[in-house]
Amino acid sequence: MVSREQLLEIPFLQALSPRTQRCLAEKALELSLEPHLDLYQQGDPPTGLYILQSGRVKLYRHSKDKCQILALLVPGQCLGAESLPTDTPSPYAATTLSPVEALFLPPEHLRVLLDELPDFQELFLRLITDKLKQFITLVHDLAFRDVTSRLAMVLLARAETEGKPYEGGIGIERLLSQQEYADMVGTAREVVYRTFRKFESEGLVHITRTLILLRDLDRLRQIALHEAR
């Protein structure tokens, strides 16, 4: 059980009725998770709903030795239970990238809440359609943009959600490996390495041991919006 105050810290839960908030607070569990922990695998039975309070999680699909990262989630977003309405295997996997604090609604409670609370049902539908829109954008980027544009797009998206002002630009934490960047933009690690070098030589980014500093957001935006195909 968690307190109603904890729930109200999550913006998208604030619009729920007091009754629904009470029911959620009764059923939710608090989780503290280590980095690089697999929350669920692609093909697993439907999971419960995780609501991120802090930390980062990646959603990805993989087949044999290849991987496609579908989304990087930030606090206030949620994951899991995507296939609960159809009772089918999870369409993707989820792994923590950093220490994570999350609220968790186990699937058996989630089913009851979805049956009994119409406002929660609508909220859940909105969460699914939001993710759907996010994936449509990803398909668009993979289909029409080249690797350089896609990498610029990923850096800008991260700057928007988690960037902090530093002298000379906006800094984002070096959370992802080059392989993970490659898995996000659908290419090989070597290509990501070369593209970062190119960005650095053109003065667009500066990479330190702990940070990627985005030094020219306007130019990065131009590159990101370019549709090569």
């Binding site: 991987c67 995507e82 309405p85």
Partner: peptide, 17 residues
């Protein structure tokens, strides 16, 4: 929409890898 999400996740993987 749950079905569609599964489909789009797969399309993304196919295009990317």
């Amino acid at each position: 929409y749950s079905q569609r999400l599964t489909h789009l996740a797969k399309v993304s993987e196919i295009l990317g890898t």
